[in-house]
Amino acid sequence: MAEKNIIEKQTDKPLIEIKQLKKYYPIKKGIISRTVSHVKAVDGLNFAINPGETLALVGESGCGKSSTGRTIVKLEEPTEGQIIFQGNDLSTLKGNDLRKVRLNLQIIFQDPYSSLNPRKRVGDLLAEPLLAHKLAGKEEANKKVEEILEIVGLTKLHKNRYPHEFSGGQRQRIGIARALILEPDLIVCDEPVSALDVSIQAQILNLLKDLQKKFRLTYLFIAHGLGAVKYISDRIAVMYLGKIVEIGKTEDIFKHPKHPYTQALLNAYPIPNPHLRDRERIVLEGDVPSPANPPKGCSFHTRCPIAKDICRQQTPKLLGSDQSVACHFPLQGGVN
């Protein structure tokens, strides 16, 4: 597997741009299945990822992170908006045109076991995309399978085993190998370490970082664990009820969060310094509101400790350059 030129400087042109992306799921009732409402899983996202960069998408369960990732790779059809990848609008592509673009766009799933066909050997699973896209014959595909298994920390002997014969960490390495074998430019990592033990999480994160340097990969890293996010990401986008409420460089987000929701997520992240146990915290109360009936105004105002009348009436815009925030009263302090 050929290494990409890692000396090449990062260009100013984004690898992928998301413009006003929406994904609504219809709620149907009655005998004729009439649509009565929609679940607004993704509600008007705008962001871009540069070549060689890792953008982390974080938030509580149910905020629309996985729906965003699945929509970007066209496992879900977008309701509205544009997905501009390498100059192609994926939201309009279908058939063979979409298949060609997908060679450079792959996904790693949260649960590697459910995403691997239990009736196929690992070698066949990894060779399948090469054969399906007619990129290699059987002999060449077999060589690439052995090579990619070595790259992700397994051996060529593992190609003859079935998925159930592997541990969780090994299965995730197989999932990474399957995403990597087509030599993509962008990989969507949909909570790839959340189902693994802590020690195995560290191994997988280190593997992802090593692969990124070796093959100049670009990641959209979806997670709710801020420890993993801090280690692997260059920038962080904080998502709440289908919208991005804050986005900026990882260091800036951790040191100077501007949105109360970001601050609450950081407060939930354990820190090793016992002297900071009594630091001021924002503690969230209640559950995330239903995306089928989101609150008016700022969607976070029902749980926000500093919400005022304007928050209940007007939806704040995502404003700022290096660190953007969607809040009428952004926080001014930082965290130690």
Score class of each variant (00 low, 15 high):
Q203G: 04
Y231M: 06
S66Q: 00
K120H: 15
I200A: 02
V39G: 06
H164C: 07
Q203K: 13
G334L: 08
K308N: 03
N88V: 08
Q110T: 07
I181N: 14
A202D: 09
V39F: 10
D97N: 14
L220G: 10
L135E: 05
I72N: 11
E251N: 10
N267S: 14
E53G: 09
E60Y: 05
P184D: 06
P274Y: 07
K100D: 10
L75I: 00
N46T: 00
T262L: 01
R281A: 12
V73T: 06
L211A: 04
G81I: 01
H275Q: 15
T35V: 15
K317T: 14
A177G: 08
E191W: 14
Q110P: 08
A195L: 07
E53T: 06
K214C: 04
S61G: 08
I271A: 10
R279M: 04
I187F: 11
V188K: 13
A264K: 01
I107V: 07
L266D: 08
Q172S: 01
F85N: 09
P305F: 02
Q20R: 13
P330V: 12
A326F: 04
F109G: 02
T71P: 00
K209I: 14
Q201P: 13
L186N: 11
L93R: 13
P112D: 09
R70N: 02
L207V: 04
S37L: 02
T92V: 09
D124N: 10
N104Q: 11
D97Q: 15
G62F: 01
F166R: 13
E183V: 09
R121V: 06
I7S: 15
V36D: 02
E140F: 04
D234Y: 04
L21I: 03
K308S: 13
R121C: 08
I253H: 02
C327E: 00
H301P: 03
R277T: 13
K138M: 05
G333N: 14
L276T: 14
P14Q: 11
E76N: 07
E150Q: 15
G168S: 02
V73I: 04
I174T: 00
P291V: 01
V188S: 03
G334R: 05
L157R: 15
P316L: 11
I244A: 10
Q314W: 05
I222W: 14
N96M: 14
R216V: 08
L131K: 12
V325G: 03
K23Y: 02
Q323D: 02
T54D: 07
N267G: 13
L135I: 08
K28E: 12
P295Y: 03
Y269Q: 15
V288W: 03
E60R: 03
N5M: 12
I271W: 12
I16T: 05
A223D: 05
L90G: 04
R303S: 11
E146R: 15
V73R: 01
K22P: 02
S299W: 10
Q86W: 00
A2C: 04
G137V: 08
Y261V: 04
H38W: 12
K28D: 00
I84H: 08
K296W: 00
F85G: 05
I247T: 06
G153L: 11
Y113K: 11
K74D: 00
